Amino acid sequence: MKNDRWAPRVTVAAIIERDGRFLIVEEETAEGLRINQPAGHLEAGETLMEAVVRETLEETAHAFVPLALVGVYMAHLDKPAGGTTYLRFTFCGASSGAHEARTLDAGIVRALWLTPDELRANAERHRTPLVLRSLDDYLAGRRFPLDLLHTHSVGPSGTQ
C-alpha cells in the first residue's frame, strides 16, 4: 500500500547577534549564491534544540547555546515539480565563538556578520523570506521560553 500522507519538512534556524551584527551564512544553492541564517533539517531522533546546535556548528563553526524561541514559521514554496512546505523553528541565543580549525558544511561558502540594514539591502539574495521575517520578529523582541517545546520519546511498542 502506497503512503500518500503529506508531511512538511521540519527545519531549524539560529539568530546570533554580536555588536549589532548577525551571524549569516553564504551558501551555494540551485538558485545560485544565497544568504541565510544558520539553518537546516531536523534529523531522526533529534530534539529541535539539538538540531539547531548541530546545524549552527556545521554551517558556521560556532558553538550555539539556544536561549529562546523567536517563532515558528510555515512556508509553502511552489516549485515547478510541485510544492514543498517547510515548518521552521527559529531560535535566538549566544555563541561562545568559532572553532577556527573546523571545516564548514559542503555548500557553505562562508559565515559572515551583517547588520540588519545590510540584510535588508540583500533581500533578493535571501534563501527564503523567513530570513527577514524572523530577524524582524527578533528585533521586535519576540521571545518564547524554551520549555514551550516538548520532546516525547516513544518506545518500540508504541508506549511512552
Rank of each mutant, 00 (worst) to 15 (best):
I15F: 03
R21M: 03
F22D: 02
F22V: 07
L23F: 12
V25Q: 07
E26G: 00
E27W: 01
E28H: 07
E28W: 06
T29D: 04
A30K: 14
A30G: 12
A30E: 08
E31D: 09
G32K: 00
I35C: 08
I35D: 06
N36F: 01
Q37W: 15
A39E: 02
A39L: 08
G40V: 09
E43R: 15
E46W: 12
L48R: 02
A51Q: 08
T56M: 09
T56C: 12
L57H: 05
L57Y: 15
E58N: 01
E58F: 03
T60L: 10
A61M: 04
A61L: 04
H62E: 09
A63E: 13
V65Q: 14
L67Q: 13
L69N: 07
L69E: 09
L69S: 07
V70D: 00
V70Q: 08
V72L: 15
V72D: 14
V72K: 12
Y73Q: 05
A75W: 13
H76T: 15
D78G: 14
D78I: 01
K79I: 14
K79F: 14
G83D: 12
G83L: 00
G83C: 07
G83Q: 04
T84R: 13
T84K: 13
T84M: 11
T84G: 03
T85Y: 08
T85Q: 11
Y86E: 05
R88E: 10
G93A: 06
S96Y: 13
H99K: 15
A101L: 11
L104S: 08
D105N: 07
D105G: 04
A106T: 13
V109Y: 05
R110M: 07
W113G: 00
W113L: 11
L114A: 11
T115H: 02
T115S: 15
P116Y: 02
D117V: 00
D117C: 01
E118N: 02
R120H: 09
A121R: 07
N122L: 12
A123W: 12
E124Y: 08
R125T: 03
R125M: 06
R125C: 07
H126D: 08
H126R: 04
H126I: 03
R127M: 08
T128N: 02
P129M: 11
P129D: 12
P129W: 15
V131E: 00
R133M: 02
D136F: 04
D137H: 10
D137L: 06
D137A: 13
Y138P: 00
L139S: 06
L139D: 12
L139F: 06
A140V: 12
A140N: 13
A140R: 15
